[in-house]
Write a protein that binds this DNA or RNA. Structure first.
Lengths: 168, 168
DNA sequence: CCAAGATAGTTGATGAATCAACTATCGTCA
DNA sequence: TGACGATAGTTGATTCATCAACTATCTTGG
């Protein structure tokens, strides 16, 4: 529900949709194109030269910051905004390559911990310079400090807007 | 080259990587999480209730604004920042559903035009209210006018940064 | 005019994402 | 205690994206 709501336009016309004005449309399209090109370019930077993909990199970053370099699957899924299923498959692949291992969660026999191995940490260390350099070139250094700060604030709001209203 | 460059750290250490400071890192992570959640939520809004996926919607929008509701495959790929291959497959699927048709390009026998059908236009009209409502809720109405404007300007710069520096 | 290279688009194989269905464990309330 | 719903995670089928290889046409320099 929610986003689906505005679709009851069949009974008596287009209803009360508030379209975007020029400026809004412009900003929205810039956002769309910018994110698309940004993530494509960043992904390319990882594919050609770095030992882990962008998604794997973010997963390793989360683990590297967790106590014991360990995080439950569910916590990892939340942090990375990934579906459980997708995380399972991703961790499968990374485990095969020896970057992480699965261990049982002590207190809860349903739970599975994902633990970064030394090889995983090495891969992270290996990838970090190229990653950061790319993020800098594509985002941080492309903007003024104010723009970057505003971007951060704005995207925090957007994340909130997207996180909450699944229901209601 | 370029993003790949910073990976020659094997000979004498970490080299001269400029890491991100606190604020930069914060902004970057907000950007990452925000975009991720935004596109997931917007995609969901399309999946549950709207007749076309988000990607198909954008394709139809481009066609709807082109003269004759027609665009060459290559132009479409550029506008949408899609690979040729991906566009071919996407148009395959849409053509099977009758949303677009392929026709030869008059002057150039290599070329293929993608033409929106009436059914395609109807699907666009059908999807538009729900789409716009979702974009509003998730982005436009979540921000102040200034934030949105700055976001647009910033992302235009990001798009530039990502578009150019493939080479060099 | 023609050979070489560029451009346009497709194809099919491989790998990744998604979805629904499933097992297992946990928590709680009667 | 034991039944029921919620939570944790996996599985396998399907759908989609990606990549390299390929055909066909066009363009340009000699």
């Amino acid at each position: 529900m929610g986003a689906t709501r505005a679709r009851e336009r069949d009974d008596d016309g287009r209803a009360d949709v508030r379209w975007l004005d020029e400026k809004q449309q412009w900003a929205w399209r810039r956002f769309l194109e910018g994110t698309s090109r940004f993530f494509e370019a960043l992904g390319d930077a990882h594919d050609e030269g770095l030992p882990v993909t962008l998604g794997e990199y973010h997963l390793l970053v989360q683990l590297s910051e967790a106590p014991g370099r360990t995080l439950r699957m569910s916590a990892l899924a939340d942090f990375l905004a990934l579906s459980r299923s997708r995380l399972t498959h991703t961790v499968d692949r990374m485990e095969r390559r020896g970057l992480v291992v699965r261990t049982p969660v002590p207190g809860d026999r349903r739970g599975v911990n994902c633990v970064m191995t030394d090889a995983g940490f090495a891969a992270l260390v290996d990838a970090a310079p190229g990653h950061v350099t790319a993020v800098r070139r594509l985002l941080v250094d492309a903007l003024t400090d104010e723009e970057l700060a505003t971007l951060g604030r704005a995207m925090a709001k957007v994340a909130d807007a997207a996180r909450g209203p699944v229901e209601s």
